[in-house]
Design a protein around this nucleic acid. Structure first.
Lengths: 240, 240
DNA sequence: CAAACCAATCTGGTTAACCAATTTAAGAAA
DNA sequence: TTTCTTAAATTGGTTAACCAGATTGGTTTG
């Protein structure tokens, strides 16, 4: 599907090559945590790519916490140790695009936890926001309109109420891909949306009552269709 | 939180302002999924910032799956719906840096799952890699050297064997911060590393035997210190 | 009238020159 | 020799000009 004529190289391909080169460089020069990488200009010359490419690759590694670049000073190797860095760079290079099954599996794992945490930690403000999202969802469903987005926003509101910023971030990362896949494969049938209102309301009520176990159970019930999709169907490809 | 004299604005601050502006623009112009954003040049002029800043902000939103930029064509709004996008942009702006507790909490959640999946899905090649990481860890410990990195690499090898690319990615994202915090707060005492070898070995063996429940139990035992660190009060998640 | 064509224009990507903060080391002062 | 000063070199960040491919709108052609 992704067949590409080799004349034009993919952007990610160039980046991975740069990251691979950086990995070799660090290994070859025995650079240790805290050490300074060669300047962006030297790297671009050495690797034969543009400086912007170098900058993008560095930004990516900065995102993963492997490098730290300081203005007017240089790019430094983070304080995580040479061995860990070597291993992580290899992992990053090996990373593949997530398949739908992997996304759903992760979503279920995250949400069964966030809903429990939300029940334990939610503030009054959190409750208001969750309720608002719930009402917006119900209204769309009652008008027989598509409500996939409102559905997800309800779940994101719960993630926010969990008080765990890492899980909140991860939910944000996977949500758009979940949405596009849902709409592509029509996972959410509109006929089941009415049941969805009831289920959402029960989840909300459990959070209001600060009952984490019940909240988790209700979420699990809500996910029964997803479970089927995740484990009883064939793997669904995902380009991009 | 970083205290900064307002003369020099943080990079992330500028980016958030740009994202906020883009959010308003989309809302004001009623842009819908599939629509084209104004060109980078126009945006930079309209917002009064450099084009590189615009590009970085767009790249960030591209990472979250909200925008898609096509070469020589334009930057488009992803197919996730206006409401979802509006909510997600708000969430992204609201994102704070993860605290250590949040990181540990998420790590425990992820690893109790990845170790089960690894026990179910591991290939022979996976076993070799996990064993290699285990041996490297044991050797360091036996030499009474610091083995935090090898420890984490063992866990990353398990994440790889889980066959879930999303969880693997998430483990990679949180690992460097975990390492730096570990070394900062000396969470891992060297006296407990010898026990660590035994625990790692048991986890490995459970994966070899394809016993997911046992693998999970052993991992839980391995995390008992982390639990203490994360929850001074009891509030330990049980299933999944 | 519709389809085909083509050139002007617009796009994200790339390149190179430039900027200000930082680092450096050579030299002056003690 | 040691310490302080200072100016040149180096750095990541910024800017603007440029590139090749895509888009667009008007013109030609059947």
């Amino acid at each position: 599907m992704k067949l590409e004529i080799p004349t034009k190289r993919e952007n990610v391909e160039i980046q991975n090559e740069i990251i691979s080169n950086i990995k070799e460089l660090i290994s070859y020069k025995n650079l240790e945590p805290g050490d300074k990488l060669p300047s962006e200009r030297k790297l671009s010359e050495k690797f034969g790519v543009s400086r912007s490419n170098i900058r993008e690759a560095i930004q990516k590694l900065e995102f993963y916490g492997i490098l730290i670049s300081k203005p007017q000073s240089g790019t430094f190797i983070a304080d995580i140790g040479a061995i860990a860095m070597e291993g992580m760079l290899g992992d990053i290079l090996r990373l593949e695009n997530p398949d739908f099954k992997s996304l759903v599996e992760t979503r279920i794992l995250l949400e069964l936890k966030t809903v429990k945490l939300a029940a334990l930690r939610r503030t009054e403000e959190d409750l208001v926001q969750i309720k608002t999202a719930l009402d917006a969802y119900a209204e769309k469903v009652n008008n027989k309109e598509d409500a996939v987005q409102e559905d997800l926003l309800f779940h994101l509101a719960i993630a926010r109420a969990s008080g765990n910023s890492t899980m909140n971030t991860f939910m944000l990362i996977i949500t758009p891909e979940i949405i596009t896949n849902f709409e592509k494969y029509h996972v959410c049938d509109t006929s089941q949306s009415f049941i969805g209102i009831q289920e959402h309301t029960e989840i909300y009520q459990a959070i209001v009552d600060q009952n984490p176990q019940l909240a988790r159970e209700k979420m699990k019930v809500h996910f029964r269709i997803l479970y089927q999709y995740c484990y009883h169907t064939k793997e669904v490809g995902n380009e991009n």
